[in-house]
Design a protein around this nucleic acid. Structure first.
Lengths: 339, 339
DNA sequence: GTAGGGTAATTAAGCGCTTAACGGAATTAA
DNA sequence: TTAATTCCGTTAAGCGCTTAATTACCCTAC
């Protein structure tokens, strides 16, 4: 078989009908008799016909693709399993359907905006996924201006934007209560960059829960998700006055990095220091001691976001979908607070 | 500004010329005078015009996109930094140009083939990247049949297919020589699945070099890149008769997993057991002891592959490009062989 | 003065598909 | 018998862009 892409008019010719009839038949719309439809469809797949996405887009205005742009430095993105899991979930929900995923990795916010704008201008996507929302995120304004269907992966901070989220606040509380039950009182949260909405949400939840539990020495410090920054911050925190007995991180990479620092400082985990990671991953399981971590349904979130986005593209109202709750998976990095 | 995508006929109207003239002007082709061209271009970007990719594709037959499908189980793909680094590299080479990346993650080879075939049928991509080639890979046959431009990321095993590769054989030798210099003689290579061409290449290089160095007890065992399989295999190897003193892995995840197993068996690394990972990553740096690893220019490979693919799409002949050589990065997981 | 040659534009066809509008034949109603 | 209704199918316009063919015009040359 040689490579020649058949078009509907090839089919029409073979079936002795007009291209219009072929189109109706192939799209399961009324206008052709059942026998004709069958005949056309038989011919179509004997010929190995596949609709040209360009032609279809041009005539019906739909791109049959959704876009995701991830704006994180290459350095960070490589390590964090988060995105690949997310992408897996996205693909799962896309599989079988006619939609494809357009992916872009950028290293600054302007490039990210430009990517969305270009996709829209080129009519390349029917909608986009938004991750890592920041305060007053310009993307919100952009998609609204462009009337570009969008789904946020994150807390419902923008009232009329559809989103898919998990109850992180609850998880933060759970972690704190768990640590307190183990006797910890000096607990530090090593958060991601302040700019992210999810960082703020968790930090707020942390502070609130700490206050409720009477943890006057609990506090939040910031790093940038990278192992280097986490190591630096952790070292500083642990070598300062009245060091904490437990650290709660905002991702897995930072927690693993901190494990190294603890080791380096001769602090035994979990005897002298407890560590909790956020976003469970193989990384957490693989290191020794294995890290206690908050597991969130990342792939599930990706899949849910895609389904929601498809609905929104189809004209459904902007829902705010909550996925299953995160859960704390205790492993060997957390233990009784030292006396 | 409200969302309304301008077309060339909007521009034509505004400039008082025909759409043909606009097209010539915008594409920098002869047929319009310099002043007219300027005027048209000014209007175009005042209007924020962006070419419709569908329309362009339809008329010139080019999709302005390249495709990558990754066929690895979600479980594996999440952990391995490899793909994200690759994607970063790909994006780097794509940035600025008009091409986008279409990504698909599948979990079986049939689905992968189907994805390529569909993209081709839909005229969605101008070319594709092929990773993880296996022996007699059906994709090779497919892209040839479809005349779909393709670049292989891997060794030049298919004569007329362009590819981008690194000299892994050399790196394998280097690792072996390094270990031998440290006094190791019982060395086991924990390889990925046999089906992959790169696995075979490295295993062959390993066996050859071992023979040359007189290592009669060197051997190769197989796992599937996952941490579970690696743990199982490592445990078996280490608890068998005359266990090896050094293990060389085919990725980073397996090496980290083995570190855990060693720990569990009470084997001190590197005093009693040396470990070498393949594909350096933050993972290797982060664990304790930090893993000695073979670092390969992954992002560079991705970028080179894209450049090559763009050339091939443009009609260039099928080159075989070799990127910079891998290098062994010694860290704390390798040491003198035990007496 | 007219043929020849550029240059700067327009025209129109075509890429592959969708879909509103139309038409002819068979069926039903009156 | 004729008119109204259905059903099945065709026609043709249009989506936004590219490009070969064509026209219109101005210059130079003989």
């Amino acid at each position: 078989m040689v490579a020649k892409r058949p078009t509907i008019s090839d089919i029409a010719k073979a079936a002795g009908v007009s291209t219009g009839a072929v189109s109706y038949a192939l799209n399961n719309r009324p206008g052709v008799s059942e026998p004709t439809r069958r005949r056309i469809m038989d011919i179509a797949d004997r010929l190995g016909w596949v609709p040209s996405s360009a032609a279809r887009s041009l005539s019906d205005g739909r791109a049959n693709a959704i876009g995701l742009v991830v704006d994180r430095p290459a350095r960070v993105i490589g390590v964090e399993p988060y995105f690949m899991q997310l992408i897996s979930g996205i693909q799962g929900a896309l599989a079988g359907g006619p939609m494809s995923l357009l992916l872009q990795v950028t290293d600054n916010s302007a490039a990210e905006l430009a990517a969305y704008r270009r996709w829209w201008g080129e009519r390349r996507v029917d909608g986009v996924l938004l991750v890592d929302l920041v305060q007053n995120d310009p993307r919100v304004e952009l998609v609204r201006e462009l009337r570009l269907p969008a789904v946020v992966l994150g807390e419902p901070v923008v009232p009329d934007l559809p989103c898919v989220w998990t109850d992180d606040e609850m998880a933060v509380e759970e972690v704190l209560e768990y640590l307190v039950a183990l006797g910890h009182r000096r607990i530090v949260r090593v958060a991601g960059p302040t700019k992210f909405v999810h960082t703020q949400t968790r930090s707020r939840a942390f502070t609130t829960a700490a206050a409720r539990l009477g943890l006057t020495e609990a506090r939040v410090v910031h790093a940038d998700y990278s192992d280097e920054a986490a190591a630096r911050v952790t070292r500083r925190v642990l070598t300062g006055g009245t060091p904490p007995t437990a650290l709660v991180f905002d991702n897995d990479v930072m927690a693993v990095s901190a494990l190294g620092v603890a080791h380096e400082l001769g602090l035994s985990v979990p005897d002298q220091l407890s560590l909790v990671a956020w976003d469970d991953s193989a990384l957490c399981r693989l290191v020794r001691p294995a890290l206690s971590a908050v597991r969130r349904p990342i792939a599930e979130r990706g899949a849910a976001a895609v389904r929601l986005l498809l609905d929104v593209i189809g004209g459904a109202p902007a829902e705010q979908v909550k996925t299953s709750d995160p859960e704390l998976v205790p492993r060997s990095s957390t233990g009784q607070a030292p006396a």
